[in-house]
Design a protein around this nucleic acid. Sequence first.
DNA 1: GCTTGACCCTGACGCAGCGTCAGGCCCCGA
DNA 2: TCGGGGCCTGACGCTGCGTCAGGGTCAAGC
Lengths: 253, 253
Amino acid sequence: MLTIGQLAAYAGVTVRTVRHYHQIGLLPEPERDASGYRTYTATAVVALIKIRTIANAGVPLARVRAMLDADPATFAEAIQRIDDHLRDEIERLETSRKQIGRLAAGDSLVLPPEVVAYLDRLRAIGASERMVAGERDGWILVGARWPDYPRDWIPYKIAQLEDPRVVRLYRLLSDALDGDPGDESRLPEVADLMVELAEESGEEETGGQAEDDLPFDLMDAFAIESDPRAVRLMELMRERGWARWTKLERVRE
Amino acid sequence: MLTIGQLAAYAGVTVRTVRHYHQIGLLPEPERDASGYRTYTATAVVALIKIRTIANAGVPLARVRAMLDADPATFAEAIQRIDDHLRDEIERLETSRKQIGRLAAGDSLVLPPEVVAYLDRLRAIGASERMVAGERDGWILVGARWPDYPRDWIPYKIAQLEDPRVVRLYRLLSDALDGDPGDESRLPEVADLMVELAEESGEEETGGQAEDDLPFDLMDAFAIESDPRAVRLMELMRERGWARWTKLERVRE
DNA sequence: GCTTGACCCTGACGCAGCGTCAGGCCCCGA
DNA sequence: TCGGGGCCTGACGCTGCGTCAGGGTCAAGC
């Protein structure tokens, strides 16, 4: 006969664990000796090890109990599900390891170096800090969901800055943003310039899959939520025959 | 600007989670708008994703917070420890998968077939149910800790049963066990027979490593705890020059 | 016989990491 | 103006034990 401490030691658990399993009816209460001590037989060791084997696989104790008094077919099925779950869990931890690794390898999670370079360029051409902060937040948002996007698109954005008209556009936007939030007087000029640039670049980019548009949708939404004047500006663009914001499209009509 | 719901969606967590992180000071409380709504910037998304990246690796939130305001060197060190922990955890789950598999592949965890065969043989030679139950519990105990032991030793035990004196020994023990627990009158006869068998088999087995003796120690202890007469029997054996129980040894003097 | 230390007993509160009401305000589209 | 969805602040619930608190028991040594 075994005491609770010996039982626990053989099964590799604590005494408290055994008592807990009694309390929730997972392990039947054994006989007591004269002084009230629980006295176990070896079958309890087996039962306990079986319970721990299942519980170690991440199965909640309530389901372990359900498994113990299930018929063999149901039991086997449950085992299969547990194994599947274990496989998924291992996979999850492995991707977690990769992400942790990326965290260690410089703060690429925070801001990709390409974006930093782009923001520096924006400052260099005279964009306001507000403007830069807005751009930064937008790219952070996009990068959080589609980590590869900034790397693919930033070079294109930087190249655009070679065009003096693009530079002028950013300065106009900066001035507009720094002014009174209710002052929409400078927006038509901005819209005209954007249309001019859009007409010129044409529709080379149309034909991209809808999936690729998600990040741009997000940035559009972000711009609109950041400042009420973005809404007015989009209206002005639509009047001129263009829709969307960060990726312009001719309105089809 | 983002609402709490949008923030949560971008980071892939629930609103409740974000609020919880505010409550425990893991994520700073943002500004509120006129109606008391929290208003987030994209940096919050980044912070939240960073938190989740670390927490997903199984790091408790308290330690996540400690990491967030640690210097880069300490941070890198912590990341290393997390990675180690992840590796261990993956390994643990993989062994768990193997054990679950053994559970599915027949109840080898409960009683190895060799032991079942051995118990049947014991019944066949006339051992009492009490005796068989005691043997069963002993082998269960051993098998729980050293799964390969029964497979290696049971054939030897079965072979021993070919000797009529061994059969007589088991019958004597059965009778003794089924009698009054205080009745030790039949023990000397048992001891004499055990000594006879021990003298004959000699000390072929001496030289085994100490590690190999653990299971036998366990079975000795189990026998003693099962019945007070086992203690008396061991005394009688020692008087006759032999120590231990399930694996006899000449007393060195 | 008495102490000491290692066990055993029950009962109860504590902890992480949120889920999930409850009760109430706010915003937007029809 | 009404309904549905989203926001707010509490506050209790859940799992799987750890960890006292406040007691009895057992074996060993003096």
